[in-house]
Design a protein around this nucleic acid. Structure first.
Lengths: 107, 107
DNA sequence: CGGCAATATAACTGGTCGGTAATGTTGTTG
DNA sequence: CAACAACATTACCGACCAGTTATATTGCCG
């Protein structure tokens, strides 16, 4: 595994490693599409701060943009982004169970 | 979604958002179990630096420890950790495809 | 074109974190 | 117990980054 690949993977994990950005993704998950102004209200983040986070998320293809007049509508880009968050959440809810090699009938 | 949960999820994503730590996990993935000294050789990281990363990974339950005399053997804690990395890698290899809502027969 | 609303960018700052060097701790061996 | 090996911890420093304030850009409307 070359160093360049590791750096790219790490870079994307690090983007998800920020409460503010996870909040953005979580809010976007509930509504299909939201403008920056709506995101400001729903997340409580400052406009400039939010805009910066959105640029980062968009550069990494975690969210998509769509211009419509004055407004810019953001949405979660793909299902895999949600899967990543869900998988991490599932991991945290366990966080003690050993490796379930045979996940069937583990009562 | 409460802020405390977001912080915990973000914290764990951030732990994966570091090339050095991904390298450790990647090396551990090839061998079943490795001592710190072996990891030093295989990763090229300094001993103190590596030990610090291992503490973080272990505190987050990404790796497991096993003491055996003078040696401490580390291993990847569970399969989900590997799944997270694989899922992110798969995302990066695409990184342009739109959301495949119907993943069957999309030729 | 002038003004305004929505969004993006720039400049700055404090906090966080990775790397390293030095030291401490634990456990083995003779 | 003395000496040594493996690993952990501490203290420190430089780099990076989130948040804020101020300003710039973009596009609508009169």
């Amino acid at each position: 595994m070359p160093e360049a690949v590791l750096s790219r993977v790490a870079e994307h994990f690090r983007l998800l490693g920020e409460p503010a950005r996870l909040r953005i993704l979580n809010v976007l998950r509930g509504h299909r599409e939201l403008t920056v102004t709506q995101l400001v209200e729903l997340t409580g983040l400052g406009q400039a701060n939010l805009s910066k986070h959105l640029q980062l998320l968009h550069a990494a293809a975690f969210v998509s943009r769509r211009r419509e007049g004055l407004y810019v509508w953001y949405a979660i880009a793909d299902q895999q982004t949600i899967e990543l968050c869900d998988l991490m959440c599932a991991r945290l809810e366990r966080e003690r169970e050993p490796e379930p090699s045979a996940p069937a009938s583990q009562a």
